[in-house]
Design a protein around this nucleic acid. Structure first.
Lengths: 151, 151
DNA sequence: TCCATTTAGTTATCATGGTAACGTAAATCG
DNA sequence: CGATTTACGTTACCATGATAACTAAATGGA
């Protein structure tokens, strides 16, 4: 089916299929990860925030913009996420003494614990995916990618 | 950095990196496609709905559930999307004579036109991606996947 | 120094995904 | 048949991504 459309538009069906398969595979993996994190009261974004703070070698704390830039997410999303993480007691924020516009974000003990608890399963899922033991990867009837799977 | 975490958890860094790179690549491709569709007043989901109807060999129309199942999307999302496509004049719905719970969805001339207009660029983007000429694929500083990029 | 520009964080709003629950219609089974 | 179960479309609500626009603070040049 992809073939029909692709050749009709002068595209190489193999390339098109390759791209679609990759998207499908990645999407299912992301779905899988998101489901795993949900079971632990996290999400991909919340997990990444904790990781980024955790591996900060210097002072163990970062400003919201710094985190947003490293994870490549917009500032409003970071604001919302940090508030929710704070509400759940996984991070704590303090005022920045040198810049009154800014804050410093640090992990709490509960945050550290949560992160450590999630890491093994996270690597397991990624590892299984690459060993071909990940989620089965049935393409859509048409071979096209489902947008829902893109999440 | 991935190495440090991965080896600390007994995972194969190469596998982990591989999974992260794939997710990153797919995410950027999806971003790219979404941006392309936005320029044409569509989205991935709206585009797929049109494709699924277009390639229906039998009667040129489908019920909302059939479309939802083929694209692997929830019913409420399909309801919303079909309403928006109808509002934009790209599809038309008629009552199903044999099942009063259901409807039949068909493309309008404008819908056909929009679909045909989008196909070449769509295949171009997919093809470029697989030929290595797609979007540059810089991993995050840490090698982890940005959730925003996952969209 | 003072005014303009940039930057940090926030708010408001939109888009797009999901689940739960509901009304109505069809189907199934006793 | 009639009662229960299943299925279709919808509504309501939540999560998570984005942009635009605002406030307050820092910065920089005339």
């Amino acid at each position: 089916m992809v073939d029909a459309y692709a050749t009709a538009h002068g595209a190489d069906p193999a390339r098109i299929s390759g791209a679609l398969v990759m998207m499908r595979r990645a999407s299912l993996l992301i779905r899988n990860l998101e489901s795993y994190f949900a079971d632990h009261g996290l999400s991909q974004l919340r997990f990444l925030v904790l990781i980024v703070i955790d591996r900060e070698p210097r002072h163990q704390s970062l400003s919201p913009v710094e985190i947003a830039q490293r994870i490549d997410v917009s500032k409003p999303v970071m604001t919302r996420t940090l508030h929710s993480l704070q509400r759940d007691g996984l991070i704590a924020t303090t005022a920045d003494t040198s810049d009154r516009r800014s804050k410093q974000v640090a992990m709490t003990a509960a945050g550290q614990q949560k992160l450590q608890a999630c890491l093994p399963g996270y690597f397991r899922i990624l590892s299984d995916e690459m060993s071909g033991q990940g989620v089965a990867c049935p393409t859509t009837p048409d071979g096209f990618l489902s947008p829902s799977a893109a999440r």
